[in-house]
């Protein structure tokens, strides 16, 4: 509130970070990390009114949803998962062409009777009436799953939170099927799983996203304008304000 600086969050490690830094470099906005490259804050010399934070991809999605950061680079899958009221809190400014991963629903290969979402819906009801419990879906994408399933009339399931090695859940007996990201499908096959037809919930990639909930004062807004042309964001300020924005 008191200072009107723009906070930009960039992934703190891995491939996503490298690609993000490269992109800013190319646009003439080299990011300098504090403490000789080891710190989790940084700055861009050309933009003195901007602070860089290095956070995990999940924290960036949460921070954008909460309005604690103005701009962030993170996966669209995480943005849609952590921002239940997506259009109200987030504006996607630019797909970045890296970090590709699809969020898919995958069932055991042995389910020869299931080839599409309609089959899965019937099986969910059969499963409940045969076993007197609902089929379990292991995932870290509970919100995306709820939205996709209810759009397809699928209600007889329950989510089992899974924070790692989700593909192993059906084999270990903790779930019947999974919703997870996949880039090649090889891990799914190795775990006796297959993606069903129409089962791609989201084709995700890294996005430069803005928070509609963050305090966009004059200073932050003009910093965004200064970023727009070199980063090829189009009229970012208008897009930030219009679609689904709260009055």
């Amino acid at each position: 509130m008191s200072n009107d600086r723009l906070i930009l969050a960039v992934p703190s490690k891995g491939r996503l970070q490298e690609a993000a830094f490269e992109m800013f470099d190319r646009a003439g906005f080299a990011v300098t990390r504090a403490k000789g490259g080891r710190g989790y804050t940084g700055e861009i010399a050309a933009l003195p009114q901007l602070d860089v934070l290095l956070l995990s991809a999940g924290e960036i999605a949460r921070g954008l949803d909460a309005g604690e950061i103005h701009l962030g680079i993170t996966g669209e899958d995480l943005l849609r998962e952590y921002a239940p009221d997506f259009d109200v809190s987030i504006a996607l400014l630019k797909p970045l062409g890296f970090g590709h991963a699809d969020v898919v629903v995958a069932v055991p290969q042995g389910w020869i009777d299931v080839s599409d979402v309609e089959d899965l819906r019937e099986v969910s009801v059969d499963f409940f009436s045969r076993h007197q419990r609902r089929m379990r879906v292991a995932t870290k994408y509970a919100n995306i799953t709820h939205q996709f399933f209810s759009a397809h009339g699928l209600t007889d399931y329950r989510i089992v939170e899974s924070l790692g090695a989700t593909e192993g859940a059906p084999a270990s007996g903790s779930a019947e099927l999974i919703v997870d990201i996949t880039s090649s499908g090889a891990t799914l096959a190795a775990n006796d799983l297959k993606v069903i037809r129409g089962g791609t919930m989201l084709e995700s990639q890294a996005q430069l996203a803005a928070s509609r909930q963050a305090p966009w004062g004059e200073g932050a807004t003009s910093t965004l304008t200064a970023l727009s042309k070199p980063l090829e964001l189009g009229d970012a300020v208008t897009r930030l304000r219009v679609k689904g924005a709260k009055s």
Partner: peptide, 10 residues
């Protein structure tokens, strides 16, 4: 034959 394990509760 296809080396598929029956997993997933059904």
């Amino acid at each position: 034959l296809a080396n598929i394990r029956p997993v997933g509760g059904r």
